[in-house]
Every structure is written in structure tokens, then in C-alpha cells.
Design a binder for these strands. Structure first.
Lengths: 207, 207
DNA sequence: CTAACATTCAAACGATCGTTTGACCCGTCG
DNA sequence: CGACGGGTCAAACGATCGTTTGAATGTTAG
């Protein structure tokens, strides 16, 4: 039977470590032996609990994406409830949940990097999985943006949202040349990143 | 002796195929056996011509980055020679060379994806290599942007350039949800991407 | 207590990894 | 001509990969 505290269970420890190592070395670059050694569990535990490495990867996504999607849709609904909501409000509803998730848990910061890795993978199976579990959220936000930017035709809007998604992914994953200064906490570093991103993206979308 | 036509030499065939497969499967995900099989050369040829897989990866970058850097700096110099150059001009000087390189050769389109992969790799050795061969170009462009955006302090500017770099990398690598329609050539698809990007980034930088 | 079940474990499976070896081919030059 | 050297080749190296096995262990229910 599963341990009393699911946070410390073998299954959860594997997921947490896998998230970190996938972010650092990629899906192909991080081996199950590295994962299980770092998690201090037996090598066979991965195939026992998840069936395969591929299923483990999907479970790493599912665990965080379910929560992230709920928060994003809730934030979007809250914003749209107000009749006078702005472009910045919708952008914030999209960005802030990712920001908060990356701070409230140990592995959250790693997850945004895993997500960026997934974009780089042109693997058909992984893209379909993400589209199935992610697509409806993007569509809802696209509709919200379309209402606030009636002057843009559909194609133009999609181009710009694509650019926003790219900027967001890379900024959150901390890929750029900006290095967090040692006197700035990771919290306020990401808070600043989000604020800059919202302003920048809003201006770009309105251009 | 090297073959008379260097484009068809074993060495060049390996570089071309490696570029494509690294883009598609990542550095760890593409094996030397896959590369040499696709290039129709012997497995040992990689270690003979490049010494190691790691050195092959660096050579894939070097071959294209040298040319890309030259074109970008030349375009920047041409823009700055005109006293009335705009923000859009500088952005174009940065984006267009990448655009053209991705179209004038078979592997060029793959290279921008390889470059995006490199961003996702937090590998210290690779980051240092890119910084050494890439850093001075980014600094020159940052200076040019700073002159055109005197109202932004240094930190604010760096944040925004970071966002631009992310959006550019992502858009050029074709990671997003925008799928090229079959009736649009790859040439004009990327041309459109560049135009949208310049407009978007200019507005974001001025915000 | 015992039977049944869930989980962990060491060990091994065949496949594939990057790399190395030594023979072999072939154009160049003394 | 023979010696040399750059290049290619099949074969093998040890290491590591994802996965499977079967026994050992722990935990729960009857």
C-alpha cells in the first residue's frame, strides 16, 4: 500500500527528481539510473510505478499541467467577470499562475524549464499529449485576446500570440543572458520577469 | 587528400546530417550511428574527422555562427551608417541575416532549431562556447539599441532584449502552434515571421 | 497466524551508446 | 617501382541504456 505521506512516497520522489533532471539534461540526456539514484529508490521502481520512461515523462507533465490549467482558467474567468478588463489583465491571468507555481514548490521552478524542453522536442507523441492537455486553455485565451484586439484579423492575432508564447517560455525558463543578482531573491526575480513580460507583450500585441 | 568538391566530402556530409538530426532529436537523442548511417559514411569517420561527438557539436555551431555573425555585424554597420536609422532597422539587421541563412542552404532551416536547442541546454561547456563566439555580437546590438532607447535604463533594456531574443529564437525555430499552410512556401512563411517579429518587438521595446 | 497483496531489491537481459583498433584502399611523390 | 600517408572500412571495446525477472520484504485482511 502507498505510504501514509504521499509527498515522501517512492512515486512522488521519482517525479520530483525526474522533473529536475529532465530540466537540466533533457529527456534523452537524463537516464533512469541517474533519476533513481538521486531519488534514492531502486532502478526497477520507475517501471513498476509508471510502466516506462515515456509514461514517466508524461506523468511529470500531467502532475503540474492539471494544476496550472485550473489556475489559468480560474484567473481568466475572474478577469472576464469584470466588464472593463484590459489586455494586461488577460496577459497577467496567463502569466501569473505559471509564476506562482514556479515558486510555491521545490520542483516548480524546474517545471517551466521542462516545458520549454518540450517545445524544442518535435516528437509527435509528446506534442499530441501536450495539445490534448493544453490546447483548450490556449484556445480560451486566444478568444479573450481576440475580443480585446478586434482590429487584428485571425491570422495576425495567431502570429502575435505565437510570439508571446515564445517570449514567455524563454523568459520563464531563464534561458536568456540575464543572470539573477545574488542580492535579489528568486521570488522577486521572477516577479520582475512577469511584470516586464506583461508590459512588453501588451505593447507588442497592440502595435 | 580531401575530395575536390568540399560540399560532398565526408566531413561536410556529416556536418549537414548532424545539423538536421540534432535539430530533430537533440544532442543526446541523435546518435553517431544515426548520423553516419544517414550521411552514408562509416561510423568511425566522425571520430576521425572531428575527434569526438562533443567536438562535432561545436563544429556544427561554428560553421554557421561565423557566417551569421559576419552578416549581422555588416548589416548593423550599414544601418548605423545612416544617421536617421530606426529601431526597426536595427531589429531587422539582427533578424534578417538569420532569416536569409535559413533559406539559402538546405541545412540552414535546421540550424535555427539547433540554436534553440542550445538555449535549452544548461550545459556549462556549450554555454561558454556560445558566449565566446556570440557574446560580442549581442553586446554591439545592445549598444545600438541603447542609443535608440535613451529613456530605458540599462537593466530595463537588458530585460527587454532578453525577451526579444526569446521570442526570436522561438519564432524562427517554428516551435509554436502556427503551422505553415501548404500553399505558402517556406520562404514566405519565414519572411512573414520576420516582419511580424520586427513590428512586435519594436512596439514592445518602446513601451 | 496465515494467506494475499503491494512494494522493494539485486541481478541480469539484449540493445545501443561513443570510441578505438588494425587492416585495407588508393593517389602522390621520390 | 616501392614507400608513404590520408582516408575508409568492418569489427570490436567497455560502458550505459531501458526493461524484465524472481526472490525478498513489508503491510493488510480474514
Amino acid at each position: 500500500m502507498r505510504s501514509a505521506n504521499p509527498n515522501f512516497s517512492t512515486r512522488e520522489r521519482i517525479l520530483g527528481v525526474a522533473e529536475t533532471l529532465f530540466a537540466r539534461h533533457g529527456f534523452a540526456g537524463a537516464s533512469l539510473r541517474q533519476v533513481t539514484a538521486a531519488a534514492k529508490v531502486n532502478l526497477a521502481a520507475v517501471n513498476y510505478h509508471f510502466g516506462s520512461k515515456e509514461s514517466l515523462i508524461e506523468e511529470v507533465f500531467r502532475r503540474r499541467l492539471d494544476e496550472l490549467n485550473r489556475h489559468r482558467l480560474a484567473a481568466l474567468a475572474a478577469v472576464q467577470a469584470r466588464a472593463d478588463h484590459t489586455l494586461e489583465d488577460v496577459l497577467d491571468a496567463f502569466i501569473r499562475p505559471a509564476l506562482e507555481q514556479s515558486m510555491d514548490s521545490a520542483g516548480g521552478a524546474a517545471f517551466v524549464r521542462v516545458l520549454a524542453r518540450a517545445y524544442a522536442e518535435h516528437d509527435e507523441r509528446l506534442r499530441k499529449f501536450l495539445s490534448d492537455n493544453y490546447g483548450h486553455v490556449l484556445r480560451d485565451f486566444a478568444t479573450a485576446f481576440a475580443r480585446l484586439l478586434p482590429q487584428l484579423d485571425k491570422e495576425e492575432l495567431y502570429w502575435r500570440l505565437d510570439i508571446v508564447a515564445g517570449a514567455l517560455t524563454y523568459a520563464m525558463a531563464d534561458f536568456g543572458m540575464i543572470k539573477r543578482k545574488s542580492d535579489v531573491s528568486e521570488h522577486s526575480h521572477r516577479e520582475q520577469a512577469a511584470q516586464h513580460l506583461v508590459r512588453f507583450a501588451a505593447a507588442g500585441l497592440r502595435a
